[in-house]
Amino acid sequence: MSEKVLLVDDEKDFLDIMSERMQARGMTVKTADSADKALAMLENESFDAIVMDFKMPGMDGIQALKNIKTQKPELQIILLTGYATVEKTVEAMKIGATDLLEKPADLEALAAKIKQAKADKMLLVEKQTEEKIKDILQRFGG
């Protein structure tokens, strides 16, 4: 099954070309040109991974990351940035970013990270489901 990805960047040209290339590699891609729009899309749709620019107008990357992780903790977020400082990378990872890639990024490397992100998400969802079942069984005397 193909990976479903939400691509978020304020550069329309970048969104267009990236989504075309990712789709050519079998991924299902939706796009948003701001973190606010991405958050709105997440309310109605589920994705295996988000690939998001770190610096966009409006909500900044760290805040967007926090909001997405609060809304969908299992979602894997790969950040793209012009410059990845050590401090920003550490901060992003602490909040729950899966990975951080510098622009211009190698699409094959990104595709591999998306594939891994989907596998990680599935493991996380499985674990959450198991815990829920355990909890229900304990509560009802299983």
């Binding site: 550069e11 970048f14 070309i17 290339r21 012009g82 410059y83 510098e102 622009k103 211009p104 699409l107």
Partner: peptide, 12 residues
Amino acid sequence: HDMKNFLAIINE
């Protein structure tokens, strides 16, 4: 930062 964005689009 802008230059990196231009390069990213050229790269893609």
